[in-house]
């Protein structure tokens, strides 16, 4: 497989992760573009045969964290109405689940959301997730545990997400 193709093969997965991470279509597109641009310009730094997926997600993680820091200094961006439009019209249940899950994900601290998504959505090993996030594997486990527990309470616990949203 050619080098260019190796990177582009990961674009759909980078986009999926970015969308879940940011909850916003435009922010996700920007994040993916920045990631590709940086990966492209630094491809010579990637050692052939090493884990390309981890490398790409590491770039995305670093950009996301930097961007979040900048944005936190400015204020939050308002999620767009179209941000979560699905390409196909989903069944009603899926739509409800979509809104609930997205709302719940937004309630997680970034660091927990990243772990929950890298492991649960991207199905990355704990070791790879640790490498991507630059944290010890033990920290991956504790963030995963706290993140999942929090999502469980938000989604299936007594407190409904929409109530929590009002409080926020």
């Amino acid at each position: 497989m050619g080098k260019a193709e190796e990177i582009t093969a990961y674009i759909p997965r980078l986009r999926r992760y970015a969308r879940a991470l940011t909850g916003n279509r435009d922010a996700a597109d920007d994040l993916v573009q920045d990631t590709l641009e940086r990966a492209w310009s630094r491809f010579h730094l990637w050692r052939h045969g090493s884990n390309l997926r981890a490398w790409l997600f590491t770039i995305m993680h670093n950009l996301f964290i930097n961007d979040t820091r900048t944005r936190n200094r400015e204020s939050g961006f308002a999620p767009e109405e179209e941000a979560f439009a699905l390409p196909v019209s989903p069944a009603h249940d899926a739509l409800v689940e979509l809104r609930e899950l997205d709302a719940a994900l937004r309630q997680l601290p970034d660091e927990q959301r990243e772990v929950v998504l890298l492991v649960g959505l991207e199905q990355m090993s704990y070791g790879d997730a640790a490498r991507v996030l630059g944290i010890p594997p033990g920290t991956v486990m504790s963030r995963l545990s706290r993140g999942r527990e929090r999502l469980r309470n938000l989604m299936y616990g007594k407190a409904s997400v929409s109530q929590l949203k009002v409080v926020k």
């Binding site: 759909p12 879940a20 390409p87 979509l98 899950l101 649960g120």
Partner: peptide
């Protein structure tokens, strides 16, 4: 649920 919600982005 994560896959149900976000996998469509892949396509």
């Amino acid at each position: 649920a994560l896959h149900t919600v976000f996998d469509p982005v892949l396509d």
